[in-house]
């Protein structure tokens, strides 16, 4: 759905995006992670033809961008760096104007399209109120509704849950999962690891303009080959497993040994009480931190 080849953007002396090769496949919920200022938004803008790449190529839905923008973008819904709307118009009028601005989309069915989009994001009840009077969360929902207007094949969402309360975040997550189940591919740019971990099937990590990691989430989180043991008799267990303990932290011991069952029977046979024993899996946070260099906050 999205492939880039050596995509690069240079702003004067600053290399904002450095030779990245994105590979987003049909049916993915792709989590595009990176700290603030790591180049996520510039990449998203290049995908949509707003910012022109310094070098490299982009293919969206198997067509070259930005050359094929006219035929590709109607099938893409986007939320870019927060929502935007005309404050003096109602939510409904805003969507109708945006729908009328794009190519295609017959006038006859416009009202139905707008209604459906408003219904999907839960804004139907306040749709005739001026956007000026909307809360941040309502504006965010309106932005999502605008992205969903043409039932896109690909959704490119930049921080879609910004400004939403936990209930709203949950609703949006359910909405995205539902759309994904119907065959929509989702490209989700975010700096919230938890959000990506819960939702995404594939992950790309951007660090100071470079794509340092890109893989299936299940691959990134597969067992590390080590076993974690939690036991109240940590001292004894440590002694028994001498030489194989990777490190010990209170009652938690990380053991270099692939076979958890054998380890369990060894400990229990020696009378060591075991609370918990299982293969170690890394959290997404650990994966990302390992892949990125330190102090991402000050990344140029």
């Amino acid at each position: 759905m999205i492939t880039t080849d050596g995509l690069t953007k240079r702003y004067g002396p600053v290399l904002a995006v450095d030779c990245i090769d994105l590979d987003v496949r049909a049916g993915d919920i792709y989590g595009f992670l990176g700290a603030n200022g790591s180049g996520k938004t510039t990449t998203v803008r290049m995908l949509l033809g707003l910012v022109l790449p310094t070098s490299g190529t982009i293919r969206l839905l198997d067509e070259p961008m930005p050359r094929a923008a006219h035929s590709v973008l109607p099938q893409v819904g986007a939320l870019i760096e927060g929502p935007a709307a005309y404050g003096h118009l109602s939510g409904r009028s805003n969507l109708a104007l945006l729908d009328a601005a794009g190519p295609g989309g017959p006038r006859r069915t416009r009202r139905a399209r707008v209604d459906a989009a408003l219904e999907q994001v839960g804004l139907a009840r306040v749709s005739s109120r001026q956007v000026r009077a909307y809360s941040l969360g309502m504006r965010q929902r309106l932005g999502l509704a605008a992205a969903l207007l043409r039932t896109p094949r690909l959704l490119i969402l930049d921080e879609p849950t910004n400004g939403l309360d936990p209930q709203g975040i949950r609703e949006i997550r359910d909405l995205l999962v539902g759309l994904h189940a119907q065959g929509t591919t989702v490209f989700l740019s975010s700096h919230l690891l938890a959000e990506v971990e819960q939702l995404c099937t594939r992950v790309g990590v951007l660090d100071r303009g470079r794509l340092v990691l890109q893989d299936e989430l299940t691959v990134l989180q597969q067992p590390t080959g080590r076993t974690v043991v939690r036991t109240p008799d940590a001292e004894r267990a440590h002694g028994l497993l001498d030489g194989r303990v990777e490190h010990r932290d209170g009652d938690r011991i990380v053991v270099r040994r692939t076979d958890a069952a054998a380890l369990n029977s060894l400990l229990v046979g020696q009378g060591v009480r075991v609370h918990e024993l299982g293969p170690e899996r890394r959290t997404l946070e650990q994966v990302v931190l390992a892949a990125t260099t330190e102090s991402p906050e000050v990344a140029p």
Partner: peptide
């Protein structure tokens, strides 16, 4: 300034 330019161009409007 209102941010609507990026959404118009991504709709897309040439």
């Amino acid at each position: 300034q209102t941010g609507t330019l990026r959404y118009l161009l991504a709709r897309p409007v040439g």
